[in-house]
């Protein structure tokens, strides 16, 4: 009896009010978007560069958007958890997610996943950032150049995890050089850098910000960057391409909503993001983390993801490397 009354009350409350916050914002999209807080889901734990980037973005986007912006962390499975959740929700523009390129361009090549987040699950809103990878060795390492390392007989290299750009860049590099090399996957950038500093592995490919200070302090030596051309933060470090190994791998971040987002909503969000990424706070975070801006509109994001996937796939095929076996 009491339960019946209770259920009735619950049903009443549910029909009368809309639920805000949390992760199931399922209220109807009203005309005049936006008229309530927009939620930005970050697919990582608090504190990493993606999280900081999104928080700076959310702070700067409140003014152009005219409503509050809330940041929610849903870490897990390189973004899959957040992606599944946000892109499975209603396409009303109140829930968007920051996604990494690696989930779509590297994960499918290296991991077996029967139920991945697909490109068609998303409406791309805007590109945000691009981060490069640098190959480092301990300062007292006998390997002074990329050629030395590639010519070594037995290399143990650290990666920041399975299905990451760190793993892919080195797999391709040592594959091209035909070096006998074994990967040792760590859980993220910091433990990987620690292992290189302690000489537990011979080399590792990590994002610039993770190694920059150590390189500057002379504790690590940077052998190569996996970028198209030399990068501003480390102008003296050659690209892998210059050393004869055409490996270009980067990590990109973009912002996307569920598939089927109305065009006006998407344009409004994109315009607001444009204004937010011009803010000093946002650029401060980019600068501090040696992250580059990625000014791509929604369609260009989709094209980039597809191209990266095809390029990596072809590279691996040409080399005859089975990426799924290379972990």
């Amino acid at each position: 009896m009491r339960i019946g009354v209770l259920l009735a009350a619950v049903a009443l409350a549910a029909s009368a009010c809309s639920v805000q916050g949390g992760s199931a914002d399922k209220s109807a999209a009203a005309a005049g978007y936006p008229n309530k807080p927009v939620e930005f889901t970050v697919p990582t734990d608090p504190g990493g560069s993606t999280d900081l980037l999104t928080r700076a973005l959310a702070k700067s986007i409140e003014q152009p958007l005219g409503v509050k912006a809330v940041v929610v962390n849903k870490p897990g499975a390189n973004g899959k958890i957040a992606g599944k959740d946000v892109f499975g929700s209603k396409p009303d523009g109140y829930r968007v997610a920051v996604m990494p390129q690696s989930l779509f361009a590297i994960g499918p090549l290296m991991l077996n996943d029967a139920d991945p987040v697909k490109l068609t699950d998303m409406t791309f809103i805007k590109g945000l950032a691009v981060e490069d990878y640098v190959l480092v060795v301990p300062a007292d390492s006998k390997y002074r150049t990329l050629k030395d390392l590639a010519g070594a007989s037995d290399v143990k290299y650290g990666t920041t995890g399975p299905g990451t750009g760190s793993q892919l860049s080195q797999t391709l590099l040592f594959g091209l050089a035909k070096t006998k090399a074994a990967p040792v996957p760590f859980d993220g950038g910091a433990p990987t850098v620690t292992a290189v500093l302690g000489g537990k592995v011979d080399a590792a490919s990590v994002q610039i910000a993770e190694a920059y200070k150590q390189v500057q302090a002379g504790k690590l030596r940077a052998l190569a960057v996996f970028a198209d051309k030399r990068i501003e933060a480390m102008p003296d470090v050659p690209t892998a391409k210059e050393s004869g190994y055409d490996v270009v791998v980067d990590q990109r971040r973009f912002i996307a909503g569920p598939a089927g987002l109305p065009a006006e909503v998407r344009d409004k969000l994109a315009a607001a993001v444009d204004k937010a990424v011009a803010s000093p706070e946002y650029n401060e975070v980019l600068k501090a983390n040696y992250i580059g801006r990625w000014d791509a509109d929604g369609d260009a994001v989709g094209t980039q993801l597809n191209e990266s996937l095809k390029r990596f796939e072809k590279l691996a095929q040409d080399l005859g490397i089975d990426l799924k076996a290379q972990q």
Binding site: L6, A9, V10, A13, A14, V19
Partner: peptide, 22 residues
């Protein structure tokens, strides 16, 4: 189950009533 469906307020009151009274 109800937490995300109808917001936390109603289930919270209901749970407290059940535990305290029931």
């Amino acid at each position: 189950f109800l937490f995300e469906l109808v917001g936390f307020e109603v289930p919270t009151v209901a749970l407290l009533v059940l535990w305290l009274k029931g």
